[in-house]
């Protein structure tokens, strides 16, 4: 699989796809998309990169084990759910900032929740695929 064309393409594809996945994540609340799809697309990006350049390269690119994304993502999701408790509302009530931010749009606890999902999905997928391709 390590042809030069594929290799070169994947180098450019990786940032593009990751960027696209973030875009999908952010627009998820208004248009098709969201944390699950976003996370899956980002994982596919990394998997393609690892196919083209070898697993070691991809790993050194990410710098840390993707498994760490799982607890981080879970914590973000849980905290965004627990945040309303601080202002005296019940668990998982949606909180929103008054004004929309540029580019991202309206920011609320649901967005953080979706980000948590996004990170968990990346962590899970990459952990599974990397572990398998390492040991087999």
């Amino acid at each position: 699989m390590k042809t030069i064309i594929f290799k070169t393409a994947s180098t450019y594809l990786l940032p593009l796809l990751v960027l696209f996945s973030v875009f999908i994540l952010l627009r998820g609340h208004y248009l098709p998309g969201g944390g699950f799809v976003g996370g899956l697309i980002a994982s596919i990006a990394f998997v393609i990169h690892s196919f083209a350049n070898g697993l070691e390269q991809t790993k050194s690119l990410i710098k840390f084990h993707p498994g760490f994304l799982m607890p981080i993502g879970l914590c973000i999701a849980l905290l965004s759910g627990a945040a309303p408790l601080l202002v005296g509302q019940s668990f998982m009530t949606g909180l929103w900032f008054e004004d929309p931010l540029p580019v991202i749009g309206m920011v609320g606890s649901a967005l953080f929740f979706d980000t948590g999902v996004y990170l968990v999905v990346i962590g899970v997928t990459l952990t599974i695929i990397f572990t398998i391709s390492e040991t087999l």
């Binding site: 998820g28 208004y30 969201g34 759910g81 949606g94 649901a110 929740f113 979706d114």
Partner: peptide
């Protein structure tokens, strides 16, 4: 405050299930 109903169900109404 979401317009993609499927996504709103997942991250808001049924967020606990998603967790």
């Amino acid at each position: 405050k979401g317009k993609n109903v499927v996504n709103v169900i997942l991250v808001d109404f049924r967020g606990l299930d998603t967790i």
